[in-house]
Amino acid sequence: MVRIGSIELNDFPLLLAPMEDVSDPPFRAVCKANGADLMYTEFISSEGLIRDAAKSVQKLDIFDYEHPIGIQLFGSDIETMRSCAEIATRARPDLIDINYGCPVKNVACRGAGAALLQDIPKMVKMTEAVVKATHLPVTVKTRLGWDESTKNIMEVAERLQDIGIQALSVHGRTRVQMYKGTADWTLIGRLKENPRLTIPIFGNGDIDSPQKALEYKNRYGVDGVMIGRASIGYPWIFNEIKHFLRTGEQLAPPTLADRVEVCRKHLDFSVRWKGEITGLLEMRRHYTNYFRGMNHFKPYRMRLVESLSLPEIHDILHEIAEVYGAEEPAAL
């Protein structure tokens, strides 16, 4: 069993990574239903939360079935992050997570996210302020370092554990790498070998199959893995990994009917939570992923992304199920 403070997780839990504009409640719902053990909100701007910005406040929405779940915060000002930890605690998550890993310019260039990897003393002070501001477990997600010459994750892990974090998730790339190249898990494995570290260490980066999850579990000894991009349009990856770890056998891939049904559930929740227009617009990024690999799918994709009518999109999904269902599995 893996413990994060008072939270008890199964051996080798599978975590859904916080992803901006992706891991909202509708997306989390389909991942939870398909085996995600611990999930996080999209990262929330501390500045936005302090200003009571509608988008930031909405990201605090948590539903009963989602537990255990963490709210992830990012920011560049220590006092603002402390205040936001208090606000986030009132939303009743199971933990508060701090983002020290986001590499995108509009975050890092403002002194937040991965930028704190260039200022470890400030990172420590900010983390300590958040730890003191909440009774909930505080965890951190970060990267190996800013660039190849400053892979300081060992120092970061030790110092953050010393001031009270309860778990650490590490993406196996530097900030400079962004999401390019192959994630390097070597240093993640060394964290697990460090006798000074007693908190759970979760690895993140390039886990896109049950086979790779098992390989990295055995090779690097991590307490669990965090899955991000591989789950977009394919929430089945969580149960597939669990089944493979338990039996050594690969689950059959989702059928076309499965893909249509989960896409439909995701769509309906998106509309209920965001309103019809916004819900339909924001689902557009998911259609290609749900039906990835289907032959001659472009005309259907165009119809799906051009429609602003929920009944019409349901009709298109029904048509996809009928047209491609007769060809399965060749259509996938």
Rank of each mutant, 00 (worst) to 15 (best):
S149R: 10
L15I: 15
P103S: 13
S209K: 04
L15C: 05
R292W: 11
P253N: 12
T255N: 05
T198Q: 14
E158K: 13
F269A: 13
K180C: 01
R173Y: 01
E148Q: 15
E158W: 11
E328A: 15
R196C: 10
T278W: 03
P25G: 08
G111K: 05
R51F: 12
S307C: 03
L144N: 06
E148A: 14
A133H: 02
K105H: 13
S45G: 10
P311I: 01
T142D: 10
N10C: 12
K132W: 00
N218K: 14
T278L: 07
A85S: 08
H314S: 05
I237M: 00
E128T: 11
P253W: 09
H243W: 13
Y216H: 11
V260I: 09
V30Y: 01
R301Q: 14
R246K: 15
P253M: 09
Y65I: 08
R3G: 01
T247G: 06
A29W: 11
N239K: 14
N194R: 10
D184N: 14
P26K: 07
V222F: 01
D52R: 14
E240F: 01
R110I: 02
K125D: 13
C102W: 04
G293V: 07
Q72N: 04
S45D: 07
P254Y: 09
V107T: 09
K151F: 03
I153T: 12
L168C: 09
M39N: 06
L310G: 00
G221I: 01
G101R: 02
M19T: 06
P137Q: 12
R92C: 10
G233W: 08
H171S: 05
Q250W: 06
E193G: 04
L267S: 00
L9D: 01
M1E: 08
V271W: 00
V30G: 00
A157V: 08
I237C: 01
A133P: 01
F63D: 11
T174Y: 06
E8T: 15
P18I: 08
D223Y: 03
V222I: 13
S45N: 04
P253F: 10
S45L: 05
G205K: 04
R303A: 12
H171M: 04
R159L: 14
F238G: 05
L95S: 12
R292Q: 13
R190Y: 11
I153S: 09
I153P: 04
I98N: 10
V131M: 04
E42R: 09
T139M: 06
T134V: 05
A33S: 10
M302S: 11
K212D: 05
M226D: 07
F63Q: 09
P68C: 09
L332T: 13
V225C: 01
M178G: 02
T142M: 09
T255Q: 05
G248V: 07
S45A: 11
H266N: 02
Q177K: 11
A85M: 01
G224N: 00
R110E: 12
E47S: 12
P18H: 09
G279R: 02
F291A: 07
G181A: 04
E155D: 15
